[in-house]
């Protein structure tokens, strides 16, 4: 019984982190799906989302506003607006001018953008860790009081629900809305969509903005869940989310969700049953294995070379 409770606890830990990875991974996978490029500045957009949320929360606290739903809403809205603007700016500055050139060029400009944003936050906010105030406390517990108890904190529940809502909204948007249909068209054939009168520039910018908005949500959630943020924390999270996107099949939205969850669970199970030291070894080992046997990722479609 105790073993089962322990397993469930590690599963919950993994799902929490995994769903946040999935939120960030969407940004990588959508951009890749549409223009076939990796947005290396995406981790920084996520980090800036977390900083904006923290600044908003601190600002509200300074005005004595402590009503939780309002605080969270304001933080979320601020983070989404600033990050979306940042995602849009990254596309305008680092991608659009060099689109259509050799593949390496936008890659390098994105890495440059990432270094710039990281250092900008270093300068503007300082390099020290900043603590998030504890806003959502408490949770449910299961199991006998004298032995191991499985607990789900309200924070973890918040992360699940928010991720679920975001993912459903995104799926509906992509499958039902006009812009969503245009997105799918552009991802299938950019040149043809252009000929058919779709404003591809707008669609590409929209992709960056959607990815950035979801990353900002993840930034707020994970900042609150972990408890502290620093200017470098987008880098590691970006790497993990990128792994998740590749694992699930880059370019595929359900793939990014699945990849994130698998990565999160494999991380928590490794630290839970093996040792935290091997967490990254197992995650990246898993990635290599999947790519060896299924080079397009779990849900990725094999690419047909257009001649």
């Amino acid at each position: 019984m105790q073993d089962l409770l322990y397993f469930v606890q590690q599963l919950i830990n993994g799902l929490t982190i995994g769903s946040a990875y999935a939120l960030i991974a969407i940004g990588y996978t959508m951009v890749y799906g549409i223009i076939g490029m990796i947005n290396f500045a995406h981790g920084e957009v996520y980090m800036i989302g977390a900083y904006t949320a923290l600044i908003a929360i601190t600002g509200l606290a300074a005005f004595g506003i402590a009503w939780l739903p309002l605080v969270l809403l304001v933080a979320l809205v601020c983070a989404v607006i600033v990050s979306s603007a940042m995602g849009w700016a990254v596309e305008r500055v680092a991608y659009r001018p060099v689109r259509g050139r050799h593949r390496l060029i936008p890659l390098i400009s994105a890495i440059g953008m990432s270094i710039f944003l990281q250092n900008y936050v270093h300068l503007a906010q300082g390099s020290r860790n900043m603590g998030f105030p504890l806003l959502i406390e408490g949770g449910f517990r299961f199991g006998a009081a004298d032995s191991f108890q499985t607990s789900i904190s309200y924070m973890q529940i918040t992360i699940f629900i928010t991720t679920l809502v975001c993912m459903t909204a995104l799926s509906l948007f992509i499958s039902r809305s006009r812009t969503g249909r245009a997105c799918r068209a552009v991802s299938q054939d950019l040149g043809m969509s252009n000929l058919l009168g779709i404003d591809t520039n707008k669609i590409i910018a929209a992709t960056f903005v959607i990815g950035a908005a979801l990353a900002a949500v993840a930034g707020l959630l994970l900042g609150m869940y972990y408890g502290s943020i620093d200017p470098l924390f987008g880098f590691i999270a970006g790497l993990k989310a990128f792994t998740a996107a590749v694992l699930g099949g880059i370019g595929s939205i359900p793939g990014a969700m699945l990849g994130g969850i698998i990565l999160g669970i494999s991380e928590s199970m490794t630290s839970g049953y093996l040792s935290g030291e091997y967490k990254d070894v197992v995650s990246f080992g898993l990635l290599i294995l999947i790519l060896l046997f299924k080079p397009t990722g779990l849900l990725g479609k094999p690419e047909v070379e257009k001649i």
Partner: peptide, 20 residues
Amino acid sequence: FEGITAGDKDFSSLVTKLRD
């Protein structure tokens, strides 16, 4: 006796292990 990775942010699995 276990190591963690410096710069890591998520210690929920470690904490679960300590509780166990």
